[in-house]
Structure formats: structure tokens, C-alpha cells
Design a protein around this nucleic acid. Structure first.
Lengths: 156, 156
DNA sequence: GTGCGTGCAAAGACTTTGCACGTAC
DNA sequence: GTACGTGCAAAGTCTTTGCACGCAC
């Protein structure tokens, strides 16, 4: 989250445009979900989003959350970030360059970063094998500065 | 899979040593699961492993598969490879250097690769932020040489 | 012999779906 | 006014767990 937080209006129109292109409707519920995601501006899970929205007085069902998440994925506005196989994590992606994370194995602390060299390296690896790069996922497991103590743990 | 396929004997003794260190027992079922994983020598899922073992006449329950997978994870013999949030994928890791993949977004084809530059870059990124690197996960989404046609699809 | 291991089925966690009513267009 | 959307609860998947019997050490 080293970039300016995204605002609702532009993303909303991207979403509306996408919905229209699919013959789907723009509803208050869908707007509320998108708004909640934007205000979070980071990783989120479906359940967590539901609770957050309830807290703010938006009454949305879990089914609608999941259905809207699917639409936002299809529209390229959010993306899945796989951290564990237990449940899906998502994050806003539209208009953001970063998608790489460093996770602290002791504290769970998460830092996003962007690195141009990584993208260059990725493209080079692809080219060497004759593939055409589209995207990537990169997660670093490490120990954060504050957590350098206690017993270590194997990478998982 | 650019390396020689691992054999049973060495991994088995690593596993036995690990089990003993934890006060656990080495059983035929656990040996069968490890053997099936080794013969697969690539990504696998729990269910798939179960079917494969049944096909070979090994009667093992799903519960034992999952319990053994957990042990092999703890013992550092296999690792989780997260590709989708639907279910967990695992792969043999002990004694292997590679853990990075290139996935074809059209055909699903999977290629493993190893890249020293990537590790160096990872370590540099960590050092710059004061973190201590432990491991990483890197997946490239791309279009394989044979699949360069049809309509594209956003990265997910 | 004891304590961990196994199979089975039931329980759990997360996600999807069927249905009847509601609403954006 | 029509077709898509919503909430609810039930169903689906993948994974874990409780229990009684069995086997490695």
C-alpha cells in the first residue's frame, strides 16, 4: 500500500461499464460491496467483508458478496491472492501495479512491494522458453526486522 | 521436472527419522503414501493420490492420506503449492531446488524452472527492507508456444 | 502391553446454488 | 414489464475430527 488509495468514482464507472457489457445490472448491493473493498484497500476475505459491511449498516447477504466478488474478478477489478488453501483472499488490482508480497513467518505481517527487475526477469525467463508472459504471483516468506527471535520454522 | 526423479529409500529414511524425532510411528500406510508421492514426482492433490493408490491396490483411507500429508509437510518433505483456492496442491520438495512454475493460461500446461537470479533478487529485496529471507513462491502465468491462438484472458 | 494409527462416518469451514420475491433498466 | 438480482437456506467441496479397534515399538 505504497500508492495513493483508490477512490470510489473511477472504479465504480469501470464496474458499471463492465456490468453493462455483460448485460448485467448495477445494483445498490454491488455498489456497496465495491465501496467496502475500496475502503479496505488491501487484502480481504469474503466473510470479513461481510462483517465489515454489516458493521456499517449495509445489509448484504453472504451469497451476494460471493456473487459480486466473482463479477469483480471477471471484470479485472480485483484478483485472488493465494496465501493458504483454507480460503480465498482477494485484493483490489485495477489501476494498481503491485501484486507482490513479503510475509513475515513469525508475525504474519504483510508488506506489498513493486519491483521492476522482477518483471524484467519474469519476461526474460518466459522469452528463453518461448512463452509469452501474462502475469505472475510472487510471495516472499521472511522474518521481519521486529520478529528476529524465537524458534525458526521451515518454509511451507 | 528437470532433475532426476527422487527414489524411495533416501526419502523414506528422512521420513522415518522425522517420525521418530516426534515420537510417531512408521506404518505401512505412511510408507505407501510417501511411495505414491515419489512415483508421482510432481504436483498432486489429496483425492488424486487416494485414487492412484487404490488403483495400485493399496487400501488407504482419505483420513490417513490427509494425516500423512500433514506429517510430510511438517517434516519438510513436501510443500503446498497454491494454484487455486478450491483445494490444496502439494509437491515433493525434499532435496529438490526448484519450486517455481510457469503455467499456461490456455492449456494449463505446467513447467518447473529454477533461477538463481530470482533467489538473488529475492534476497536483495529482503535486505533492502531489513527482512531475513526464508523462502518464496513464484508463479508465472503465460501462454505456451503451442497455445498462441484463441481469445486471451485476464490474469487471475 | 501401551500409545499412537487407522478406517469410517460425522462434523466443519468455505463457497455455490435453487427458489420465490424484488427491482434496475 | 422483463430479466436479472437478492436473501435465505440447503447443498456441495474439500478437509478435519471423534471413536472403537488394531498394530508398531
Amino acid at each position: 500500500m505504497s500508492e495513493p488509495a483508490p477512490t470510489f468514482a473511477p472504479l465504480c464507472s469501470v464496474f458499471r461499464r463492465f456490468l453493462k457489457s455483460q448485460g448485467l445490472k448495477y445494483t445498490p448491493e454491488r455498489a456497496d460491496v465495491l465501496e467496502a473493498i475500496i475502503e479496505r484497500d488491501g487484502l480481504f476475505e469474503a466473510e470479513e467483508l461481510l462483517l465489515e459491511m454489516r458493521r456499517r449498516g449495509h445489509r448484504v447477504s453472504k451469497a451476494t458478496i460471493y456473487r459480486t466478488i466473482r463479477l469483480l474478478l471477471d471484470g479485472g477489478i480485483i484478483t485472488q491472492a493465494l496465501f493458504d488453501s483454507k480460503q480465498a483472499h482477494y485484493r483490489l488490482i485495477y489501476g494498481k501495479g503491485t501484486r507482490d508480497y513479503m510475509v513475515c513467518m513469525r508475525t504474519g505481517k504483510l508488506v506489498e512491494f513493486e519491483n521492476r527487475e522482477l518483471v524484467a526477469l519474469r519476461d526474460r525467463i518466459c522469452r528463453d522458453l518461448g512463452w509469452q508472459p501474462v502475469g505472475h504471483r510472487f510471495q516472499i516468506y521472511a522474518i521481519s526486522p521486529g520478529a528476529a527471535s524465537a524458534s525458526g520454522r521451515r518454509e511451507s
